[in-house]
Design a binder for these strands. Structure first.
Lengths: 333, 333
DNA sequence: GACCTGCGTGGTAACGTCAACATGACGGGC
DNA sequence: GCCCGTCATGTTGACGTTACCACGCAGGTC
């Protein structure tokens, strides 16, 4: 670290000459080849440390064709879950020595463009975090790009990682039924969203299982604003006593609409959300919701991607969810 | 696109031979060199299109030393603003043909590790989005990494981009004063946060300017939970009639604490937040807050970084903020 | 007509790494 | 004592690109 302020970066050759070996041996040490004498290895490692050697990623990528970089495609939606997920993926990738390149994509056209950009950045594979745009088979999914899809349907060529939306939604609905509500209304996520469809399915299954009649589905777009908009109409109906919103942010909008309409939660109406974002515990009242384990999702998504890169067969991975009961749902009077 | 399913990717040489020129000429076309005959250029471009040629990033990086990749360091804090900012930066980088690598860093030790990782990914420069850990001069900021710092103090070697926290906070406080409140309490962000300090400064300046006495500062950690915790104590004091929270999420916690204590907002207490995250309009009541222009921040941060990479002198860039008045603050009875 | 200048183009080498092959030393089995 | 296998190491070339220099040609200037 003394006179290392040279302009040129230190390369394998520098390490080699310092350790008195060939460049190839240094390469073997760097890549953990077993064919190196322990004593030589130690000498090389010392030289690397002394010189502050760092392998040159680009050179290695050029030679091997592997960039050791993963991509992540995220939709521009302002959902809090995405950020949590991105963080988890970033950490999981870092742990495995992979860099992570982010690309944003809003809408289907942008998705193609996003893949384009990833291809051209030469990532080894990518995670698609874009629930709004299901990955149809064929053209839009580049054949040469290894993909893992999160919370989205995909053809069988791709691994899928997702929360167990269906079970979570079922648990939420059963919880409301158990509180004595005659039925449970559902504020679903947008048409075309896989997670939304799964949650709706879980809700429906729970009602069916209890022999109850499902009211018509109301649909929002994940935002609190849409929750409020739909909530205004729902608050008008006296037969609405239990509401299951497909995410916490829409539930927030519902809470406001109900409060404004003079229908107290949980006194008169019970509300349950989905996600358990950090703020949900401080909603008014604190929100009963279904927790997603984003860290686990991130881990599994990266694992699945590494598997895909290594040529393992794709599979679907389901991460459990858990009901968190708070004050927005209490036993019916 | 017909028989392009070869295993090897198409390189410059392929394009060159198809267009009947040398590789060097192709390189010149790709890099927009003026020294190319228009007719030749057209021929090369056609060949590139027909072959689906894409420049090999790694090879280029190896040769030029520039990776055309920017890094972004984000703290693990669950602040919604970070995600918005990251998106904006991703888009700005993409527009300029740069890839973006994300690295997470919680705490000061992690910051050094984050720089390490960025260095070894060979980014051309990085944006630091880590308000919790000010960048002291010297060791922790690697000399060979071009940096732009967002919302953080830094030494004069680095460009700084930030919202005009001080002016925003001043406007928020002046708004509350104008409503007739005898004074304004402040729920500040955590010690050590630059943005928090700036907002506190603006709050203080507004009170001083109006000749009012500043109550003691109460301090949270940006989370809604901390807002609620501090809010419980504040709600107990009858002399609290106006509250300015340093971010929206803490304001959410305050709203809950006040509601639980039976002190209606805005009837009895006025509350103003900071950030204008999407949910703030659906808080109970809808929150008056100070809007940050994240897209503009992202643009400017990337511009500043490109400047730093090109060796331009660092400067500090201030992005205006704007007060958004909603129902949580109304004229005092 | 010799000289220069500018332009479009091509040839060559090098960036740092790793795969393939080559080498040499040693030891064991016949 | 010879052959062969194993092991540790070295040599060479190539990945795709661009910087540098060189070349030939046209159109001027003296």
């Amino acid at each position: 670290m003394s006179e290392a302020e040279q302009s040129r970066r230190v390369s394998m050759r520098d390490v080699a000459s310092r350790a008195g070996v060939s460049g190839q041996t240094v390469s073997r040490v760097v890549n953990d080849s077993p064919r190196v004498d322990p004593e030589t290895r130690a000498r090389v490692e010392t030289a690397m440390r002394e010189l502050g050697y760092r392998p040159h990623r680009a050179a290695r990528a050029l030679r091997t064709g592997r960039t050791h970089t993963l991509g992540i495609v995220v939709s521009t939606l302002e959902t809090v879950g995405n950020f949590r997920m991105l963080q988890a993926v970033a950490d999981a990738a870092a742990t495995r020595g992979y860099a992570l390149a982010v690309v944003t994509a809003a809408g289907a056209a942008a998705l193609a463009e996003a893949f384009d950009r990833l291809r051209d950045q030469g990532v080894d594979g990518a995670i698609v975090l874009n629930e709004a745009t299901p990955l149809a088979r064929g053209a839009d999914a580049p054949a040469d790009l290894r993909l893992v899809v999160v919370d989205s349907p995909a053809d069988e060529r791709f691994a899928v990682v997702q929360s167990d939306h269906e079970a979570g939604a079922r648990a939420a609905t059963e919880h409301l039924i158990a509180l004595g509500h005659p039925t449970v209304w559902h504020l679903a996520g947008p048409e075309g969203s896989y997670a939304a469809a799964e949650r709706e399915r879980g809700w429906h299954a729970a009602l069916e299982g209890a022999g109850l009649v499902a009211p018509p589905v109301v649909r929002g777009d994940w935002t609190a604003a849409s929750g409020h908009r739909e909530g205004v109409a729902l608050a008008d109906r006296p037969d609405v006593s239990a509401l299951f919103a497909a995410n916490d942010q829409m539930a927030l909008g519902l809470l406001r609409a109900l409060a404004e309409a003079g229908r107290p939660v949980p006194g008169e109406v019970a509300v349950v959300g989905f996600d358990d974002i950090a703020d949900a515990a401080d909603y008014l009242p604190p929100l009963t919701t279904v927790r997603q384990d984003f860290d686990e999702l991130g881990e599994r998504a990266v694992d699945a991607l590494m598997g895909a890169i290594d040529g393992r067969a794709p599979r679907t991975d389901l991460v459990p969810t858990r009901l968190i009961v708070r004050e927005s749902s209490v036993p019916r009077r």
